[in-house]
Design a protein around this nucleic acid. Structure first.
Lengths: 345, 345
DNA sequence: CTGAAAGCGCTTACAG
DNA sequence: CTGAAAGCGCTTACAG
């Protein structure tokens, strides 16, 4: 009788390790490590180099992510935190992903509801990412404190918040000016502004742009035509209700945000007020697929993807405590939908 | 002269390690590890347990993600791969994130353009995630081979592909039936179907639902009224062009996908064909914010979030090579927009 | 210039 | 039942 040895299963995963490669190539594993990461200090014959590469390829070797992270004291990943459920942020995500791909980093994403989730804070302290990009935070969240707490370099994308010294923002002021000028050019004079939340960075800059455009055109700004809301569609409805409660409808509206503008439009329609027949509407930010809508919302597009890209590059390439102040000025473009017309009468 | 010792910087990051906690609590680091991960085999006095917890809290200790991953041979993360730039998939992402949050896992996301990026394949072999969810892949991508290659348990969400035995899908057939019945009920008889790509799982099931509804109503299906396209808005335009080239316009269209439907609508409008006056339109899937659109696209909503949630649970809780066949039948709902009317005259 | 060894921060099987 | 030790799979400072 022959004893058949029980099928001895591999200790852990069956993936090849650096030792397997070293053995196959007949070199020390330090050499493998250096060859595969193109360490310039390594002096070996080209032939050895090739042997190592081939061994790695033959075995389908890939360095273990966690072992590498531990040994290098670098995570090999970047984190992105975006507001929950807002399709605009897909663009930021796409920009960040471009950089992650180019640098061989993993992208880890999570959504927030205005504040930083505690769970995520804890993960950050576990060294989960080498850098964190945050967008759409409430005004009062302290990003500098987050860096102090977690030791992870943080950068804000699109919106600054309390005490933050590291951000990439878009030219919201210009966008709002552009939107307003578009209306003015068509003859509008009584224009309402459906703004974002008070004290929020982008909201303030968009208001400024609106005021500038009005002032430059010599138009009076009626303070009863300012309404604050959230950057959400449902808030757009409330903003319209508030506005209508205050007096006669203006001839045009600038919505500080696309979902907000959509909500406003919807609420107007619900009251039998037609856009653009009764009132014109321009929003800031272009939603995905807007160019295919019938009718499309006229809006000013901002380069969110570029913001994501740029922020990722900067947070990776700048010392963790150095300030980053970047305003992206290009890429502000008016998208002509069908929600704007000359004022009636 | 007194020699002032140079400020000796900490070796690596300044984050506390398990050794710091052990020292502060006066126990071995094995005890710390077991206390903090609630190891049931550990027998120590409650007082010790408290001491350890306090020490950890005082120091703000968090286990190093990579050290833990290496020692446990588990990544502590799940991966999600979605098609690039399609806002529908935000819902799947949200569902997956719910599960990741509940289980303390990191969520790593990437987008694809039909096929699996090589870069991602390599990362997977590095043990970057414990499980991978994939959605919207081309029909011919072999997910089983991906598992064999990477050793990472894979599950397909929303769409099956070649040779895959692990998937969570939605009731696409029912959705298409529902959409078609809605039109039939209003009196439509000549209905065109703007379908997805040939051989794609969801496309086939949606066609089947359409055919079933037509047959059940005793309506003849005109084969010239079938057009294939991609699940993109631009493809919707091409589908309309193709359809119009074939003959007279039907009284209604079922679009197999929301972006596709949007593109069709846009193309129709561009030719002066009004929806729903000249032709009615229903699409499958509801885009984010659709309920606020003026007018909104009538569509059948499918529970993408539930699919993401369920797929994440299943891939984590099922042995890596066991088949997973799950069809989510609830949650198919007609959303009445303004793109459907009775046929003219 | 090269190679063997120490160390990254954890977990867990195993000896006491 | 407890605690000291080995080991996860890499990288890199350091001795030859």
């Amino acid at each position: 009788m022959v004893a058949i040895p029980s099928d001895r299963t591999t200790r852990r995963s069956s993936r090849p390790t650096i030792n397997d490669v070293a053995q196959r190539a007949g070199v020390d594993r330090a050499v493998v490590s250096k060859v595969l990461s193109d360490d310039p200090t390594l002096r070996v014959r080209d032939e050895t180099r090739q042997r190592v590469r081939h061994a790695a390829a033959d075995l389908g070797y890939r360095p273990n992510f966690h072992a590498q992270g531990l040994a290098r004291a670098r995570a090999g990943a970047i984190g992105l935190l975006v507001p929950h459920g807002n399709p605009l942020f897909l663009e930021i995500m796409a920009g960040v992903e471009e950089v992650a791909t180019a640098r061989g980093l993993l992208l880890s994403t999570a959504t927030h509801h205005g504040d930083l989730p505690d769970r995520y804070r804890r993960l950050l302290r576990g060294g989960i990412v080498d850098a964190l990009l945050v967008s759409g935070l409430q005004a009062q969240v302290d990003a500098a404190a987050l860096f102090r707490e977690t030791q992870v370099p943080v950068i804000l994308v699109n919106r600054r918040s309390l005490g933050s010294d590291r951000w990439v923002i878009l030219d919201d002021e210009h966008a709002a000016r552009r939107a307003t000028e578009h209306l003015i050019r068509l003859g509008h004079q009584r224009i309402a502004f459906l703004g974002g939340p008070p004290h929020v960075d982008t909201a303030e800059r968009r208001i400024r742009g609106f005021r500038t455009a009005m002032a430059d055109a010599g138009l009076e700004v009626d303070e009863t035509l300012f309404v604050h809301g959230e950057y959400t569609a449902s808030s757009g409805g409330e903003a319209v209700a508030e506005l209508l409660g205050r007096g006669p409808l203006p001839t045009a509206l600038v919505a500080a945000d696309a979902p907000l503008g959509l909500g406003a439009w919807h609420a107007l329609a619900g009251r039998g007020i037609a856009v653009p027949r009764d009132v014109s509407l321009v929003a800031i930010h272009k939603l995905p697929l807007e160019e295919f809508r019938v009718p499309a919302l006229t809006c000013v597009e901002l380069p969110l993807r570029a913001a994501g890209r740029r922020a990722a590059e900067l947070v990776l390439d700048t010392p963790p405590d150095a300030p980053i102040h970047e305003l992206i000025t290009e890429g502000v473009e008016l998208f002509e939908g069908s929600t704007v017309a000359p004022p009636r009468g």
